[in-house]
């Protein structure tokens, strides 16, 4: 199954919901009425796009309808698809692969979004690309989090640095980065404990981890990936805001898109922040972490 099919299958529920509803809305209707726009609003809000992003999209649509550029169901679909893709594309940046090893990636997020699983899948991807990967068990707080990452490391066949449960996570990453540098690893991925973004002291702990990494390798961590759960509603905005303010997020990973959640919140996030969406998680299997393609995502969301 190629990537396109995979995304399509995973988003099947969503896609059916959206297009069928949009089709139904426009069927047997000549004029575009307020009721019709209201129903369209419902479709977008139900996909978790949020009120402001939805109103923005509807506003643009109304403008196009007024100037007669959008006239029927098909055109509305195309227009919304293009618009969503544009919003999602806004923050995309050209990947430069010319980094100096070891390249350090720090993975952060609130509890239960799938950080450890994402690290497992990411390590697998990178290993397949021929990279020498080292994992750092930076979640020393949650019971068995270290074991969980260790099981992943064994399964994938990558190396792994850990301390005792309850140890200072900064010490773990410090050791990992030093080891990674000395033993010539290409990539070091640091796990962190899940934390509510509103807890100031826990945010300080993350900032310290970041500082410590930077002490061993001056421009590291090179990437700070924020993991968001596709089931999350508007709170994802607050999560992104606070994590970004404190740690400077360089990319977003959207997980659990294999459920029926729409993940529409990323449209809102892409609209509000200048952070690119890097990967999407489509299932529990190792190869279910995919690069994010804005146009593909928008199409899969809206076309048959």
């Amino acid at each position: 199954m190629n990537l396109w099919q995979k995304i399509k299958t995973s988003l099947a529920t969503t896609r059916q919901g959206l297009t069928q509803k949009i089709d139904r809305i426009f069927k047997d209707r000549g004029k575009i009425t307020q009721t019709l726009l209201d129903e369209l609003e419902e479709v977008l809000i139900m996909a978790d796009l949020g009120v402001s992003a939805t109103q923005k999209i509807i506003g643009h649509l109304q403008e196009k309808i007024r100037t007669n550029e959008v006239k029927d169901s098909e055109e509305v679909k195309d227009f919304i698809k293009t618009l969503i893709a544009q919003i999602l594309e806004k923050n995309e940046i050209e990947e430069s692969h010319k980094w100096q090893p070891p390249h350090v990636i720090m993975v952060i997020g609130v509890n239960g979004v799938g950080k450890t699983t994402t690290i497992g899948k990411l390590a697998w991807r990178l290993k397949k690309e021929g990279k020498k990967v080292l994992l750092a068990a930076g979640d020393t707080f949650r019971a068995a989090a270290i074991d969980q990452l260790e099981i992943w490391a064994q399964k994938i066949g990558v190396d792994f640095i850990k301390h005792q449960p309850g140890a200072d996570p900064s010490a773990v990453v410090f050791d990992a980065i030093q080891a990674g540098k000395a033993r010539g690893y290409d990539i070091i991925i640091a796990d962190t404990a899940g934390r509510q973004h509103t807890k100031a002291n826990l945010m300080e702990e993350l900032k310290k981890m970041k500082r410590v990494i930077g002490k061993v390798i001056p421009d590291a961590p090179h990437e700070v990936l924020l993991v968001l759960d596709a089931n999350t509603g508007q709170n994802a905005l607050s999560q992104t805001n606070l994590f970004h303010q404190n740690l400077g997020v360089t990319g977003i990973v959207l997980t659990k898109l294999d459920g029926s959640a729409k993940g529409g919140i990323i449209v809102n996030i892409a609209d509000t922040f200048d952070i690119p969406i890097k990967y999407i998680g489509l299932g529990e299997e190792l190869d279910n972490l995919q690069e994010f393609h804005p146009a593909l995502f928008a199409s899969a969301l809206l076309t048959d």
Binding site: I45, D48, D229, N231, T232, G233, K262
Partner: peptide, 12 residues
């Protein structure tokens, strides 16, 4: 259930 769940909460 997670308190941050979005519109999907109803279906779950």
């Amino acid at each position: 259930a997670d308190a941050t769940t979005g519109q999907e909460a109803v279906n779950i």
